[in-house]
């Protein structure tokens, strides 16, 4: 796991360690099963066309879960994720599979973020972040924000 991040280590503008993800058709089926969201919009090409999105799209909730991982990877076990929000602005299309396990070449998504505010409240050391999922063209398809409590180096 990542090195421990303390409240004193971050400033406004500090970047969160980015997280790369490759959405594949296989992954969307896995997500459908694991989350229990069986909307055919995410695996049935004809249905997706009829719905006007052209082809199956990546679940918004999967991108939201990636952003959750972005934050929990960064803050580690000593930090606490208190709030997470995001908006599903742009549609993302998964890579198709070349073999049973390997996707074709194509887009890689990056989950990124940076610190927008830090403050103390009661006994907590809080950090607000702007976060987003960015597609292969660098467009933020899923912008959001997060609030975390970080451990401090100060003696209590």
């Amino acid at each position: 796991m990542a090195k421990k991040v303390y409240y004193e280590d971050v400033e406004v503008g500090t970047e969160i360690i980015p997280l790369a993800k490759i959405a594949t058709t296989r992954m969307l089926v896995q997500w459908a099963g694991a989350s229990g969201d069986f909307n055919p919009l995410h695996y049935d090409g004809e249905f997706a066309k009829a719905m006007g999105v052209g082809a199956p799209i990546v679940h918004g909730a999967l991108k939201r879960a990636w952003l959750g991982q972005l934050m929990t990877d960064w803050i580690g076990e000593q930090g606490k994720l208190k709030k997470l929000s995001c908006q599903y602005r742009g549609m993302d299309y998964p890579r198709r599979m070349k073999t049973r396990e390997e996707p074709h070449d194509g887009e890689t998504w990056w989950c990124k973020g940076k610190v927008t505010k830090k403050y103390e409240e009661g006994s907590e050391h809080l950090v607000e972040c702007e976060i987003w999922v960015e597609n292969g063209k660098g467009e933020k398809t899923t912008p959001g924000s997060a609030l975390v409590a970080l451990p401090t180096r100060k003696r209590k």
Partner: peptide, 16 residues
């Protein structure tokens, strides 16, 4: 098991 399958579907290998 449902937690493990959900974490795997995210691709999150966090041992927690």
């Amino acid at each position: 098991g449902a937690i493990q399958r959900y974490a795997q579907a995210i691709g999150d290998s966090n041992p927690l």
